[in-house]
Amino acid sequence: MFTKRSVMAGAMAAVMSLPLAGAALAQDLQEVKIALGWFRNGQYAALMAADVEGYFKDEGIAIELLDGGPGKNPIAIVGVGQADFGVVFGTSVFRARLASTPVDLTAVGAMIQGGPYAYIRLADKGAPEPTPKDMEGKRIGIQSDGEVFLKAFAAANDVDYDSLQVQIVQGGAEPLLTGQVDYFSGWVTNQTFQIETETSAEDAPDSIRGKIWQGMLLSDYAVNSYGDVIVTQTRTVEENPELVEKVLRAVARGLKLAEEQPEHVAQIVAAYPGQLDSEEKMIWRMTSGVQNGLAKSDATREHGYLWMEPEVWKEYQQFYLDTGEIDRVMDPSEFSTNAFNPGIKSD
């Protein structure tokens, strides 16, 4: 897809050779489109930092980030060739491959090593960390697709599921903040900022003022998973391996930079065109350690950023098989590869 486009673009540039032809073409960079799973925000800091710092350019690449959103599915966007790479939730990789009309994509790296999905509660400062048993008898707010996770979480931790008062809620943290629920399923990289903002606001209600959030990650307590997985068409892996290597190297360098210079990355990402997080939130995101912590694991320390352990994929699929969401599993080597991992290790 992109090779054809770049040939065409090259031909056009040759014919036109005008300033209009665009910076990317003028410098003879290969144009690569990356479809994000959501609107560009600090979650994708590594990509934007790598872009700003010229890591992609070093590889001869000019990236264009395509925003996700409520109506966008990066799996399909990569599948039809509107983008060369996609950044998706780990589950969707094998589900896309196992679907009745499969999309032939391959996972080439995971920016988030453990899913940020967690059960979050409000607590007083200095309160002891929560345990799964604490949830018994409490009101739990989950999103409409969250029941399987909660059941698995309960089963893995000997929690009496029947004692939980489950409510279906929207993605925002409002139900927790209004006291409608005691626990709430959200991402520790996202809604927690909303909680911190509201609990520290000057006009915060007494019931939440000064409180802190505590969370139990699903990946710690029940099932391991990967988030922000980089996918591309299997054809690209086969026909254009150098490109995959180049993109992953730039991304891994971005992740490394975020770990080493979080304040600097917060600032350049906050100023990135079209990026939606406020500077305040970016600084929180990068310096609180939440996001960088998720990017690292034993595997990244041993092999490098973005590494994906086949064992994790197996466990991950098994969970979906056990809950009846999929009817068979694939060998991880069929839909994922570490062949292009650049080996940039985390601390």
């Binding site: 925000n41 959103g69 409520p70 109506g71 903002t197 939606l276 997080d277 406020s278 939130k281």
Partner: peptide
């Protein structure tokens, strides 16, 4: 609604911006 779902422009996108920034 369409802008909200797929676009980076229009009032629908402003809604997304507002939601993202709380």
């Amino acid at each position: 609604a369409v802008e909200w779902m797929i676009s980076r422009t229009g009032l629908g996108y402003v809604i997304n911006q507002g939601m993202m920034a709380y």
